[in-house]
Simulated assay, not measured.
Amino acid sequence: MKYYRHLYLEEGLEKKKEKIISKLEKNKLQRNTHLIVLSANEKNHLDIIHSAFLLQPGYPGKNRLVVGIAGSYDGALELVEKIAGDVYKETGDVDIRNYIMSKEQGD
């Protein structure tokens, strides 16, 4: 998995970031972890997935860009709202996908 270099974290997860990422990389079950990833469908911006989906054989999410990590689905929704707000403040638009890709490439 790839992780956005400006990774969004739900409040309270900042100190656990490295531990969570390590468990994700080792395919360990994390019951309370939801990931906000860049959508595989280029017409959409973001998807919210439970980390357990990554444990399924052949799940296509292994190569996706993780934009945010939350401890609950509700927390993930709040992060998506924060991401959209940040993008709008910076650009005056809500083209989240292009904003994230340009930030990831160093612009």
Rank of each mutant, 00 (worst) to 15 (best):
L9C: 11
L65A: 07
L7A: 01
A84C: 09
G61E: 09
K62P: 08
R5E: 07
F53N: 14
Y8C: 03
L38S: 01
E11A: 10
V66G: 07
V94C: 15
D93N: 15
A70P: 07
V94R: 14
E18P: 05
S51L: 05
I20T: 02
I69Y: 02
N32F: 08
A40H: 14
Q30C: 03
D86S: 08
A70Y: 07
V80T: 09
A70V: 09
R5S: 04
K89L: 15
D86Q: 10
A52M: 11
P60F: 10
I49V: 11
I96S: 02
K89I: 12
Q30G: 01
A52Q: 12
D47K: 10
K28E: 09
L38Q: 04
H45L: 04
G12M: 01
K43W: 02
N27D: 02
K17H: 06
E25S: 02
T33V: 06
L77V: 14
H50T: 08
K26D: 00
H45W: 04
S51F: 05
L9Y: 10
G58E: 12
V37D: 04
A76D: 05
I96H: 03
L24K: 00
S51W: 06
E78N: 14
E14C: 01
K23L: 07
L13W: 01
N63R: 15
L13Q: 02
K16H: 08
S39W: 05
K19L: 14
K26I: 00
L29A: 03
I48L: 13
E18W: 06
E78K: 15
E81A: 14
M101E: 07
N32Q: 02
Y8N: 03
R97F: 04
K28N: 01
F53R: 15
D47Y: 15
